[in-house]
Simulated scan of single mutants.
Amino acid sequence: MKRTLPALLLPLSLLLAACGGASSADDAGGGPGDGTDGSGSVTLNVGDQKGGAEAVLRAAGELDDLDYRIKWSTFTSGPPLLEAVNAKAVDVGGVGNTPPVFAAGSDSKIAVVGATHGSAAGEAIVVPDDSPLKKPAQLKGKSVAVAQGSSAHYQLVASLKKAGLSVRDVKLRYLQPADALAAFSRGKVDAWAVWDPYTSQVLSSAKARVLTDGTGVVNGLSFQVAAPSALRDKKKSAAVGDYLKRLRRAQAWVFKHPEAWAKVWSKETGLPYDVALDAVKRTNGSRVTVAVDQAAVASEQKIADTFADLKLIPRRFTFADYVDTRFNAGLPPSSAAPRSYGKASR
Rank of each mutant, 00 (worst) to 15 (best):
Y174N: 06
S106H: 10
Q138M: 13
V113E: 01
A158T: 10
Q155G: 13
D129T: 10
V126I: 07
I125F: 04
K109W: 06
L165Y: 07
R173I: 07
L156P: 02
K134A: 15
V146C: 00
S159V: 13
P136W: 05
S150K: 01
S159K: 12
A124V: 01
A111T: 05
A124R: 00
Q148A: 06
G122K: 01
V113P: 02
S131Q: 06
P132C: 09
A120M: 09
H117K: 15
I125Y: 05
Q176V: 10
K161M: 12
K140Y: 12
D129E: 13
L165D: 08
L175E: 07
Q148Y: 05
S143W: 02
A121G: 09
E123R: 01
D129H: 01
D107K: 15
Y174Q: 04
L133S: 14
A115S: 12
L172C: 04
L156D: 04
H117L: 12
E123W: 07
Q148S: 06
L139A: 11
V127D: 05
E123G: 03
A145G: 08
T116P: 06
Q148P: 01
I110E: 01
D130G: 08
H117A: 11
K171H: 05
V113Y: 03
S106L: 12
H153N: 14
S150Y: 00
V167K: 09
G141H: 06
A137K: 15
S166C: 10
Y154V: 08
H153V: 01
K171C: 00
L172E: 03
E123N: 12
L172V: 01
P136Q: 12
S143M: 08
A111D: 08
R168L: 13
A158R: 07
